[in-house]
Design a binder for these strands. Structure first.
Length: 761
DNA sequence: TACAGTCGGGG
DNA sequence: GTGTACGACTGTA
């Protein structure tokens, strides 16, 4: 019997035997499971004889396929290519069939062969996670699905998701958890249940009852990927008590092994992943950037990328932007090349040249400056790609309609919109719209946070898009496109500098996508508007005023005080908020005690309304530092505030000179706790050999072993960073702090106009 | 002093 | 499976 309903798409995946499974949340509240036939296709191109051989091979396979010859477009070829089109009737059978074909016919080029299943479905039906759909069925099978909203809607109808959060009372990597706290809503902080992890049978029975009663759409856990779900599954098997962690009871949990990989110049460790069917599982401690954009951002990423909620929660936003490019290609019938993981090639001359061909970096004018505006290009690199139509297939392509990249002499085809700009345009538009919505709402409005989290998710998509363009293993990457983007970026920044100088301004600093500038007599946002308009006109790129600093200090190098460093500065905006880059408080490996002290100093300086009064803070700041030093020496600082947390960059046997982190990791290893590259190790600086004490050793640290002198030194340095622009050198501060020298011995307490202070008003 | 190891950065 | 830079800084030999 046919029926129709509207509701939200919760999950889509291929069924081992029967097409695709869809889970839908009917707007009347029911969760419905439907099957649908969904054949999937991959393509092969190459010499006709090879294609014929592949044809013969495929028809002999047990897997049901429909074969056909077609002409299709390869993004990088002008002419259409002839391909063998392999339609696999059962989508779950495609990966194995393709692998076998690729193994036997290594010389053929394959396309659309290794795509995330959700993308294949999304390309055909325009679906995305949580899409609002109209569905017709014959009861069991889906007959028709029509999506009623779009990922680009600002306020789409959101489903009333049922969330169940399962939280452990301790990190299983460090201590054995004893208790599971369960909440049934995100809003209510009061736990609904507390279950002891032992004895096991009552735990399983109770948890099963809770899962059945609440039937959540989303399981939000702490350490669920790496410990909790695998642990529960093992218990369930051992005690033979079924536990419905999956909503789809025909499937088991899916696992992906832990791995370490190199990304962004450092090793990243991703723990084991545990995935559910019919509902989504997110481990908030194993989810990428979850702290930055929360669940709202994860859902936004899933909607715009069409990747599943569980996927976007665990992978970098680069995966999301790549998925969007694939989707753009699929929907336009452009072939998506099979993405072989290529071995690293030796660096080419091009790679070396890139060293000084990145973003524009300028030497700041060291010292303290008042009334400085910080002006940033908004999403600079993505805006450049969109504005100049930079895409792997448009760069270096001659056509009747090209433009020339400044200084590089590379052509960019303007005749038709590129794949990357087409993918980026709606993202750029939506991010601006989200930011405008945020700005329009009052601070108390709860929707403000949600818009911000969504905008933050978009920010990461846009940021990673640029790097992806220059990544040689990317499907749609091309180094010349990457270079064209940075060349336009440098050009735009120089144009902005000229615009500022033409309006009589003093440019203090340029850094990749921003400039710090003083216009004479300017002190308000509207005073800077003409400059913003001028830059926008000259470059064609969107620009924004990040803020006007009451004062900002650019720091010199610690190694050589005469050399400015581009990204070490701090300042206070007119609204009293702080901004800092590169200093100790921003670093993840600074002990909290040191970071808190530095922040406290800055907060006191932020209280001062006028820059001229800043040196007046000196006695106060010095008092603060002395107080902190005293509490350190009297051992009043709680040990957790002295913990250093650093990432291991390699295996322990690969260290030639073991760093403090490596020595702490070696301590842990000797008690059986081994750490992988990319994992963090926490330790205290300690007296004697080996100079550290790992925080997660079974025996808690003895406070008497603390290396107080080392912490005092760190405190001194962090203090000196802040006082340096006021004319207090590290040596002077050392005298003050450690030798109790009086203020009189301080050359920093001088009239403001002293050249010693480097003060420019 | 040289060199090996770690970190930032994007709003 | 998704940015294998680059420069500043710190600790160790």
């Amino acid at each position: 019997m046919g029926q129709a309903f509207t509701g939200w798409l919760l999950d889509v995946y291929d069924d081992p035997q029967d097409g695709v499974v869809l889970w839908l949340l009917d707007k009347d509240g029911a969760r419905r499971r439907l099957h649908q036939d969904f054949p999937v296709t991959f393509y092969a191109a190459g010499p006709a004889s090879q294609l014929r051989a592949l044809w013969r091979f495929l028809v002999e396979q047990p897997t049901q396929v429909e074969l056909d010859r077609q002409e299709r477009r390869d993004l990088f070829c002008q002419e259409p290519v002839t391909v063998l089109c392999v339609r696999v009737l059962q989508p779950a059978l495609l990966p194995r069939l393709f692998q076998e074909a690729a193994r036997r016919f290594p010389t053929l080029s394959f396309y659309d062969a290794d795509l995330a299943f959700s993308l294949r479905y999304a390309a055909v039906y325009n679906t995305f996670p949580l899409a609002y759909c109209h569905i017709t069925t014959d009861g069991q099978r889906l007959q028709n699905i029509t999506v009623l909203d779009s990922p680009w809607d600002m306020d789409p109808p959101m489903p009333p998701l049922r969330v169940l959060s399962l939280e452990l009372d301790s990190n299983p990597a460090h201590a054995s958890p004893a208790c599971l706290t369960i909440r049934t809503t995100l809003e209510n902080p009061r736990p609904a249940y507390r279950l002891p992890l032992r004895p096991e049978r009552p735990l399983l029975v109770n948890l099963a009852a809770i899962l059945n009663r609440h039937d959540p759409d989303l399981l939000l856990t702490t350490w669920g990927d790496t410990w909790l779900l695998p642990h529960l599954l093992a218990l369930s098997r051992r005690c033979q008590i079924p536990l419905p962690l999956n909503r789809d009871l025909t499937r088991g949990l899916a696992h992906r092994a832990a791995r370490s990989y190199f990304s962004y110049g450092r090793v990243v460790h991703v723990g084991q992943q545990t995935l559910t069917f019919g509902r989504s599982h997110i481990d908030r401690y194993n989810a990428m950037l979850f702290h930055d954009y929360d669940l709202t951002g994860v859902l936004e990423l899933a909607r715009v990328s069409a990747l599943s909620i569980q996927t976007v929660a665990r992978t970098s936003p680069g995966t999301g932007i790549s998925a969007m490019q694939i989707l753009t290609a699929l929907r336009q019938g452009i072939l998506v090349p099979w993405h072989k993981q290529q071995a690293e090639r030796p660096k080419t001359a091009l790679d070396l040249l890139r060293a000084d061909q990145g973003g524009m970096v300028y030497q700041p004018l060291v010292g303290l400056h008042a009334n400085v505006a910080e002006i940033d290009f908004i999403s600079m690199y993505p805006s450049i790609m969109a504005h100049f139509n930079i895409s792997p297939e448009t760069v270096g392509n001659h056509s009747p309609c090209t433009c020339l990249v400044p200084q590089l002499g590379i052509c960019i085809d303007q005749a038709r919109p590129g794949l990357v700009p087409q993918t980026l345009n709606p993202l750029l538009k939506k991010r601006v719209a989200l930011k405008i919505r945020t700005a329009d709402l009052p601070h108390w409005d709860p929707r403000r946070r949600l818009y911000k989290e969504r905008a933050s998710a978009h920010k990461w998509l846009l940021v990673t898009c640029f790097g992806y363009l220059g990544y040689k293993n990317a499907r749609f990457g091309r180094i010349e496109a990457h270079e064209a983007v940075t060349a336009y970026g440098r050009e735009a920044l120089l144009q902005a500098k000229e615009a500022a100088e033409d309006l009589g301004g003093l440019v203090l600093h340029l850094y990749v996508d921003g400039l710090w500038v003083k216009l004479p007599g300017a002190s308000t946002v509207s005073d800077y508007q003409p400059l913003l308009d001028e830059i926008s006109n000259r470059t064609g790129l969107p620009i924004g005023l990040d803020g006007i600093y009451r004062w900002v200090a650019f720091l010199p190098s610690r190694v050589d005080g005469r050399v400015p460093v581009p990204n070490r500065y701090f300042g206070v905006f007119q609204d009293g908020s702080l901004k800092m880059r590169g200093i100790e408080a921003r670093r993840g490996d600074t002990p909290p005690f040191i970071a808190q002290t530095q922040l406290a100093m800055l907060e006191r300086m932020a209280q001062v309304p006028e820059v001229a009064q800043l040196p007046g803070c000196l006695p106060d700041l010095l008092g603060l530092l002395r107080g902190r030093l005293a509490s350190l020496r009297r051992r009043r600082v709680p040990l957790p505030d002295l913990v250093v947390s650093q990432k291991l960059s390699r295996r322990l046997d690969e260290y030639r000179t073991p760093s403090p982190a490596a020595r702490a990791a070696a301590q842990l290893e000797s008690t059986g706790k081994s750490l992988q590259p990319g994992q963090r190790v926490r330790f205290l600086y300690a007296l004697g050999d080996p100079g550290v004490y790992a925080w997660d050793l079974p025996i808690p640290p003895d406070p008497a072993c603390l290396d107080l002198a080392r912490y005092a030194e760190l405190l001194l340095r962090a203090g000196a960073t802040i006082l340096q622009p006021l004319g207090v050198s590290e040596a002077t501060l050392r005298d003050w702090l450690f030798n109790n020298a009086g203020y009189g011995s301080c050359p920093g307490v001088l009239p403001l106009n002293s050249s010693l202070t480097g003060l420019q008003l």
